[in-house]
């Protein structure tokens, strides 16, 4: 498996340079009144879609920025354009 990612600072770089931060799952839930179940659901449950998903990546071997990108796990490739507007 090898592909490239577009770092907002450094541009297209090899995936080796990045660490994966998981799917975008929204901001941390409010902890007031947060049930254990809801917390663990937010923390652990993932849908595994075979379609483009928003992901977090960290440019560990580069500039050290966390960024969001939309990528299709089916092809491993980033999807241009769409996805950014759905937040």
């Amino acid at each position: 498996m090898t592909f490239r990612l577009t770092c907002p600072v450094c541009g297209k770089r090899d995936v080796y340079e990045f660490t994966f931060g998981g799917q975008e799952r929204g901001p941390r839930p409010e902890q007031e009144e947060l049930s254990a179940e809801d917390h663990f659901r937010w923390m652990q449950f993932r849908m595994i879609p075979c379609e483009p998903q928003e992901e977090w990546w960290y440019h560990a071997q580069g500039c050290g920025v966390w960024f969001r990108t939309t990528r299709d796990p089916g092809t491993n490739l980033e999807v241009e354009g769409d996805g950014d507007g759905d937040e």
Partner: peptide, 12 residues
């Protein structure tokens, strides 16, 4: 550590 701080404050 830097990665950790930045990750957990990434939405803020």
């Amino acid at each position: 550590t830097v990665e950790w701080f930045r990750f957990h404050t990434r939405h803020d």
